[in-house]
Design a protein around this nucleic acid. Structure first.
Lengths: 246, 246
DNA sequence: GGTCGCTAATGGTATAGACAACTTCGGGAC
DNA sequence: GTCCCGAAGTTGTCTATACCATTAGCGACC
């Protein structure tokens, strides 16, 4: 079955009409400073002799790239450049401090529940073993940065929820009360559209492209400590990692 | 100006209608094996008493997540799970081999041109200094994986294009002919929609979400060697990095 | 038996329009 | 002068429709 490949290679590079509109807009905003308004949808519709749907598709692309910002009832504006976000540091507070931000955390929910198949596998637990599920909103200078969902074994870390409510920092509780230090981690990075809830908490739109960071951390014995998925706005952040040596 | 923040926190979690359709579809495909067809757009439109636009929006979300695959004239099907792609190895061939793929490369274009401001800055060259621009399509088992655009100084690596055409591997040419070995690199990861050209080469749709990897590599003296941007299909790949020690 | 071409069904693109939600701004009431 | 309310203009959501591009299947023809 080479049908798919043959179709792909023979497929002409047809440019959708919305992409011509997008290129028109890119030329318009190229040298414009952040905050500068672009023409309204209706103006673009008449100027470019097209439909509002087509204009909106082009605008949506540029919003997804982080080059435009739209505000309902107000207009569409050139966006601030993306911010870089360092990877490969264990603690969110460290990451924020490394770039001069004041980090804070809002605990959205913390509960004990049976593990799903995926979580049980990640934490090397038996099916439906009890786990803690923490949902936290990470902020830098009081602006929402990321939405994190963590899973930890409720057996191994019995009493974690109460201790966490008192001290606030999961990292400190793990090291000081449980003598657990992560020594290795597997990190995964992918992209996915935002759910309505995620969009609301991160002040963006449902379906907006997100960068999803997964961290699977292990202690010195090689046992899994936690499994975390962090959702960042893809239109606002670029992840940066520094690699040294071979 | 706290208006934006106030609006964000007070904004109710209103679920668009398309998201209800998306949840309906997620329930449908949850336990389905890859390749299984889902109902056609027109069937879903009548079954869910909505418009085709709304159905298509939900389907587009699931395609962006890599959970569905659509083929014009054929139908919509449950997708294969995403593939993982290792980061933090210098050579594409190494990365592919690490996961059991046979890597190959198609040189799409190679030319000498004056540097743009961004490229000149990255390579620490004066404005409009001559650089080589290489565009390569990376394949694994003859399937397109990534589209790479590299920039190198045409002064420092004079004669590179000819040597590259003879040997094929940029990495080998750099080490053997120029005695240059990358010892450090800054990597950036972001997400952006595919252009028509990128979509055609990677066998996907214009506007599809991509993972964009930037690599800025340096030699032992700290001088920049090359600046590369690699585009991967976000619906098909998850990047994986392993972190050891602190 | 093989091949060509037609047809039906699918997803892809584009249009026009209605209404909702939200912001801004100015005029009128107090 | 201050406050409130409404009008106008903006983006957000959803609908209905038309036509195009591609595919698979089938039947007629050679």
């Amino acid at each position: 079955m080479t049908g798919a490949v043959a179709a792909a290679t023979s497929r002409a590079a047809r440019e959708p009409k919305y992409y011509a509109v997008k290129r028109h807009l890119m030329a318009l905003i190229e040298a414009q400073p952040p905050g500068q308004p672009v023409p309204t949808e209706r103006v673009l519709t008449t100027e470019l002799a097209t439909s509002r749907t087509t204009v909106r598709r082009a605008l949506a692309d540029l919003v997804a790239e982080g080059r435009l910002v739209r505000r309902q009832g107000c207009g569409t504006f050139v966006a601030e450049p993306k911010l870089t976000w360092p990877l490969q540091l264990t603690s969110f507070t460290e990451q924020a401090a490394a770039h001069g931000f004041r980090a804070s955390t809002r605990l959205l929910s913390a509960r004990r529940q049976p593990a799903t198949d995926e979580v049980a596998g990640r934490l090397q637990l038996i099916e439906r073993a009890p786990v803690y599920r923490l949902e936290r909103l990470r902020l830098a200078d009081d602006r929402p940065i990321a939405l994190e969902t963590s899973y930890l074994s409720a057996i191994r870390f019995a009493g974690l929820l109460g201790r966490l409510r008192r001290t606030g920092s999961l990292y400190r509780v793990l090291t000081e009360r449980y003598q657990v230090v992560p020594t290795a981690a597997d990190e995964t990075i992918e992209t996915a559209p935002a759910s309505p809830r995620q969009a609301e908490l991160l002040d963006t739109d449902t379906g907006a492209p997100m960068l999803v960071l997964g961290r699977h951390s292990f202690d010195a014995a090689g046992d899994p400590i936690e499994w975390v998925r962090s959702w960042y706005r893809g239109d606002r952040y670029t992840f940066v990692a520094q690699l040294r040596g071979r």
